[in-house]
């Protein structure tokens, strides 16, 4: 079974690489099969790692507990499981996503979406403020305290000054409430230079990332697949 798997994987790998020559039926076959299998897998995972453990199991335990309550076989565990009945509410709201299937009732999906969006917005405000505004600002200014205490080397002092200049200039570039003229224009130009360096660094690393994927696949074809032949 393992050897068949290697051959299937190698065939599909080559089908996709055939696109490098030009678009062709082998590539289209592999591409569509990939979409189908991936979506199928995500459905399985969403059900088995999402719906069942988070909704179905606690609810069914709660219903069993309710039955135990009715027939008088209650235990402390079943009484505790009764709390699971409250999950009916979020489950019902979650099920409203299925309203997407009916054009007349599509508006009902606004309920679960509104809850998730409100939840996300609520948690974001204090935490993003703390992690990305306060901590990042502190990180920019903090080296100057060390500089003041005389514990920062010449290079680190130079770096700290560069970071402050870079941050201020980059922010100036994104500051559209005033016209970019005179000193603001110069600051914003320096900001563009920093951004270009940042994007250049990202591009240089992206090359490495993309090549890594290719090296991995070539390694599979040459070592695993060809290795199974010779």
């Amino acid at each position: 079974m393992e050897i068949i798997g290697i051959w299937v994987a190698a065939f599909l790998t080559l089908c996709i690489y055939s696109f490098l020559y030009r678009d062709n039926p082998f590539y289209r076959f592999a591409e569509h099969l990939f979409v189908g299998i991936s979506v199928g897998y995500i459905i399985i995972i969403s059900i088995h790692q999402g719906v069942i453990p988070l909704a179905w199991e606690p609810l069914s335990e709660a219903i069993s507990a309710l039955w135990a309550e009715i027939v008088g076989t209650t235990t402390p565990e079943t009484r505790n499981a009764l709390w699971g009945l409250f999950r009916i509410l979020p489950i019902a709201i979650g099920l409203l996503f299925f309203a997407r299937l009916s054009s007349r009732h599509t508006w009902l999906i606004r309920y679960p979406i509104a809850i998730l969006i409100g939840f996300g917005a609520g948690v974001a405000i204090p935490n993003v403020l703390q992690a990305n505004i306060f901590a990042q600002t502190r990180g920019t200014i903090e080296p100057f305290a060390a500089m003041n205490a005389g514990t920062l080397s010449v290079l680190d002092t130079f770096n700290a000054v560069l970071i402050v200049i870079g941050v201020i200039c980059t922010l100036t570039y994104f500051f559209f409430s005033v016209e970019h003229r005179g000193p603001i224009n110069w600051l914003s130009k320096v900001g563009i230079a920093f951004l270009m360096i940042g994007f250049g660094a990202a591009f240089g690393n992206t090359v490495m990332g993309r090549l890594a994927l290719l090296i991995h696949r070539v390694g599979f074809l040459l070592n695993d697949w060809m290795g199974s032949i010779f």
């Binding site: 992690a131 690393n205 993309r210």
Partner: peptide
Amino acid sequence: VTAVIIAQMYPYLQTGQ
């Protein structure tokens, strides 16, 4: 992290996050 997203990690590295 994969190389593609390395650059955006550095501000968090400097702050100790």
